Simulated assay, not measured.
Amino acid sequence: MARENRSQRKHTPREQALKLFPWICAHCGREFDGKKLSQLTVHHKDHNHQNNPPDGSNWELLCLYCHDNEHQRNQVADTPDTAPTSQPQDRPSTFTPFAHLAALLKRPTSPT
């Protein structure tokens, strides 16, 4: 009976994704196997964890780092702009790092 329960058990999205996709992070391209396979996670592309189509079209395998980065980007995009409105954000930079380069290149070198 224990075998029947295991075979009838619905597989998690991660288990299904690991069967469907190569064990490579979809963002950074790192390959995973053996003990490191636990660092590969399933990311829901539409961020809806209830949307689990059997063909895996809403999933991608991401390493822990890329998965965290993906969710951080999503959180930042969802937060309202908290920057003070008194400072313009699109002000061009006035810094010119090579302004005096020509003068530096023309300097005479000291004899050694």
Rank of each mutant, 00 (worst) to 15 (best):
L64C: 12
Q89C: 03
H67F: 10
Q50L: 12
T96F: 14
N69D: 11
D55I: 09
A103N: 05
N74E: 10
R107C: 01
L101E: 13
V76G: 02
D68T: 09
F95A: 07
A99C: 08
K106F: 01
N48M: 04
F95W: 09
V76Y: 01
H44Q: 07
A102Y: 11
L40E: 02
D68H: 06
L104C: 07
T96W: 15
F98I: 05
A102L: 15
E70S: 10
H71N: 11
T41P: 02
P54R: 08
T41H: 14
T85E: 11
L101P: 06
T82A: 13
P53E: 02
D68S: 08
R91H: 04
T79R: 15
A103D: 08
C63G: 04
P53I: 05
Q75L: 00
L64D: 14
S86H: 11
P80R: 00
L64I: 15
A83C: 03
A103H: 02
L104Y: 07
P97A: 00
C66V: 06
V42N: 04
H100E: 14
F98T: 14
H67S: 09
H100A: 13
P84I: 01
N48C: 10
L62E: 11
T82E: 13
S93N: 13
A103Q: 05
H49G: 09
H100R: 15
T85V: 08
T41Y: 10
L101C: 07
L101A: 14
S57H: 05
D46F: 07
P53R: 02
A99K: 15
H47V: 10
P84Q: 01
P97V: 01
L105M: 11
E70T: 14
D55T: 08
R107P: 00
A83F: 11
H71Y: 06
N58L: 12
D90P: 04
H67V: 09
F98P: 05
S93R: 07
W59L: 13
T82V: 10
K106G: 00
Q87V: 14
R73C: 05
P84H: 00
R73H: 03
P54D: 11
L105C: 04
N74V: 00
G56I: 03
K106N: 01
T82Q: 10
Q50F: 09
Q87P: 00
D55H: 10
L104N: 07
H100M: 14
C66R: 01
L101V: 06
L101T: 10
Q75K: 00
P84W: 00
N74W: 09
N74A: 12
N51R: 02
K45T: 15
H47M: 15
N74C: 05
L61Y: 03
L101H: 13
C66S: 02
V42P: 03
Q50M: 09
H49C: 12
R107N: 01
P54I: 10
S86I: 06
N69T: 11
V42L: 04
P53D: 01
N74F: 08
E70A: 10
E70W: 06
H49F: 11
Q87H: 11
V76C: 04
